[in-house]
């Protein structure tokens, strides 16, 4: 059974429609990549899954997104609960201006965990999982902003998985990073796949090809093609997909 089922999702900014009847199944403990040109709605769709679009005025979403069977778009749903289950890593690494330790402990503290020992354990485990423990273990109480860009992003991943979400959304997580840092994040995604369902939006098609199991190609707010990544990147079915992945666009 898929972890996330997206059915007939339409999204409107005021009167302007940005997503058109999206149908998509996101498999449990798989990496699903959304690709497509800028403005195609892939980030918007991603933000529907943790209702971060609610922050924008005049947004209306119709259709259904079910997370492990529960309706995400239900207006009575407590979005903070949802967001604890659906973590998110952003395009620009956004560590808080706090210590490394406090960054990772932020989510657990919100969840109400207060015991020092528990927090210590969660912080260490999360940093381990995010493959940054070795680099920061001696300076957990230094300001997080002093780390490098790649470390920032891994710290943000650690912060996200510290609350043990079911799904991790990644919105172009490597677009601000150099190739080495990008490779580390991609390795990390492979690791995280063992435990988490990952949805990644990326501009970098090769990245989608490298890290994902399934890829969705979106264009002008519509889901053009969705399928196994190797299939989509070698023998896509739609001409638009073919043109996009081979770089014949615009």
């Amino acid at each position: 059974m898929p972890e996330v089922e997206i059915r007939q999702v339409c999204l409107f900014y005021g009167s302007k429609q940005a997503l058109f009847d999206i149908d998509l199944d996101i498999g449990r403990r798989e990496v699903t990549a959304f690709i497509g040109p800028s403005g195609c709605g892939k980030s918007t769709l991603l933000r529907c899954m943790n209702r971060l679009n609610d922050l924008v005025d005049n947004v209306r979403v119709t259709g259904s997104i079910r997370l492990s069977g529960g309706e995400v778009l239900d207006p009575t749903l407590d979005v903070t609960d949802l967001r604890k289950r659906v973590g998110m890593v952003f395009q620009k690494p956004n560590p808080f201006p706090k210590t490394i330790y406090e960054n990772v402990a932020y989510g657990p503290r919100i969840l109400g965990i207060k015991q020092k020992a528990r927090l210590d354990e969660i912080v260490e485990r999360s940093l381990h999982s995010a493959a940054i423990w070795e680099e920061v273990k001696d300076r957990l109480h230094d300001n997080a902003l002093a780390l490098s860009g790649g470390q920032h992003q891994r710290l943000c991943i650690a912060r996200t998985i510290a609350v043990e979400p079911e799904v991790v959304l990644m919105d172009e997580p490597c677009s601000a990073l150099d190739p080495i840092a990008t490779t580390k994040i991609e390795e990390l995604i492979h690791e995280l796949k063992q435990q988490y369902t990952i949805v990644i939006v990326t501009h970098n098609m090769q990245q989608a090809a490298r890290v994902s199991d399934h890829t969705a190609f979106m264009y002008l707010g519509r889901l053009v093609e969705f399928g196994k990544t190797d299939k989509l990147f070698t023998t896509p079915e739609k001409q638009e997909t073919e043109d996009y992945i081979t770089g014949r666009f615009g």
């Binding site: 090809a209 990147f233 073919e242 992945i245 081979t246």
Partner: peptide, 10 residues
């Protein structure tokens, strides 16, 4: 150099 995909790769 071009990491071809799809038609080009084929």
């Amino acid at each position: 150099l071009h990491q071809p995909a799809g038609r080009d790769l084929r």
